[in-house]
Design a protein around this nucleic acid. Sequence first.
DNA 1: GGCGCTGATGTTATAACGTATCAAACATCT
DNA 2: AGATGTTTGATACGTTATAACATCAGCGCC
Lengths: 157, 157
Amino acid sequence: MPHAHTHSLEDNLSAAAQWCAKRGEKLTEQRREVLALLLSAPGSVKAYDLLAAIQKQKPTAAPPTVYRALDFLVAAGLAHKLESKNAFVACCDFEHPHHGVMLICNQCHTVKELTDPVLEARLAEDAKAWGFSVAPQDIEVKGLCANCRHGDGEAQA
Amino acid sequence: MPHAHTHSLEDNLSAAAQWCAKRGEKLTEQRREVLALLLSAPGSVKAYDLLAAIQKQKPTAAPPTVYRALDFLVAAGLAHKLESKNAFVACCDFEHPHHGVMLICNQCHTVKELTDPVLEARLAEDAKAWGFSVAPQDIEVKGLCANCRHGDGEAQA
DNA sequence: GGCGCTGATGTTATAACGTATCAAACATCT
DNA sequence: AGATGTTTGATACGTTATAACATCAGCGCC
């Protein structure tokens, strides 16, 4: 059975740092801080909320501060951008780069990542019928997560 | 074989007006104008580009003018919002309300709508395995359309 | 023929999201 | 030390979207 992602925040951050190092890049302090915020959040987080959090420790931080960190994290596979919500979420399994399906809860904003090769193949096939070639990307799907469906889904982030 | 959507702009607009009437709503002049712009564009269009076009005839138009029209058109099924691009596109077949797959060309910005019940079923099934219930929505998929793949895809809109 | 209701529009202002630009700091290599 | 490349700081700006409130047009009604 797969490991249960019980890593502590620190474990995740050092694994991320190693992952960057392997790619010849650095998880600098700012990037680390943004990633820590994403990992700590229960769901997705908006860029300006990250900015506000960072400004508590570093009042001079400006939008480019956080957008640069986010761009880096997304490029490194450490985070995903949810285009349909203008929000960001830590990647649950950056060691295995993937594009898949993001199940986004409309109520609590949590995100479940999954991959389904059958689904992807079907999509590519449908597209091919129109001569369209699909680029690698995440598919964003909105709905209600199990918790929120059962009525105990208090709004979180 | 299916009809080839060779309708003229006027045909489309009057069909849309009837569609609205059937729903107890009105395709007012502003809404009609925005829809006409969407129908005439080769691909998706940004809200502020629509605004600029409208301002040529009516210089007092402001952002709410166009956003209100767009909200109406989307709610009525006459247009789709492409969330991943912050752009809008006319619906190709509003008489048959649907949510499906939008194949968005990264180069020429054209959009091909399609539906695939098998794909949707598979997606719903995947989600269900996690207790997640999928809401009706369009799936946005980016890539390259047939034209642009073959090198004759000059940038359009 | 005026009254009140409703939906649509006008108008101003502002919120929310994101980028360009250029300079300064820092690291790394030789 | 000096050259080079990357990261950060800081200001300003561009883009996308909505809040809030006033006004207007149509329509049923008495």
